[in-house]
């Protein structure tokens, strides 16, 4: 058991551990980070890891990379309880929970094909964000996205 645990949490020198990801969302987190296939650094992904609080969770570890604000905002939309651990020289240099922004711009595509944000007009999509559960309301056409948010991320 301990060997198994050790393998899952093998320490990294520098990078980011994204913990407490909603079970089933790890692949979407990789997509947000642009990791689709070939990638230069070590990436570890664990799915459906037993968790006392959550029942199950996913974990993603990326070596030699710290995340940008836009990436954190996108992760918060699909997994608002995720925590970010910044690792520097094997130490946890910083640890925090992702925070849902009040508004997201240019991150999500509106589900309404007739929305002005889905035309050739020079307009960036804007959504108001509501919590528990996460709901995105398009400020242009007022359509609400509640399900499969990952599918609508730009």
């Amino acid at each position: 058991m301990s060997a198994e645990k050790e393998l899952r949490v093998r320490p990294i020198r520098d990078g980011t551990v994204i913990d407490r990801i909603l079970a089933g969302q790890a692949m979407n987190v990789l997509k947000i980070l642009g990791i689709k296939g070939a990638y230069s650094d070590v990436v570890t992904m664990a799915m459906n890891v037993p968790s006392k609080e959550l029942g199950q969770k996913d974990i993603v570890k990326i070596e030699n990379r710290e995340l940008e604000e836009k990436e954190l905002d996108k992760i918060s939309l699909i997994s608002p309880g995720a925590t970010i651990n910044i690792i520097r020289d094997f130490e946890v240099a910083d640890k925090y929970q992702v925070e849902l922004p009040e508004m997201v711009e240019g991150m999500v595509k509106c589900i309404n094909p007739n929305c002005i944000s889905n035309t050739k007009e020079p307009v960036i999509s804007k959504f108001e964000v509501k919590k528990d559960p996460v709901q995105l309301r398009c400020i242009y056409c007022e359509n609400i996205i509640m399900e499969n948010i990952a599918e609508h991320l730009l």
Binding site: N112, N114, C115, I116, S117, T119, E121, V123, C138, I139, Y140, C141, E142, N143
Partner: peptide, 23 residues
């Protein structure tokens, strides 16, 4: 015909926009 077009127009207009129907 597009929903939200009046709000977008307001962002680009230097005079008041009155929405006469947006989709």
């Amino acid at each position: 015909p597009s929903e939200g077009s009046a709000l977008m127009a307001a962002e680009f207009s230097s005079v008041p926009i009155i929405n006469g129907g947006d989709g």
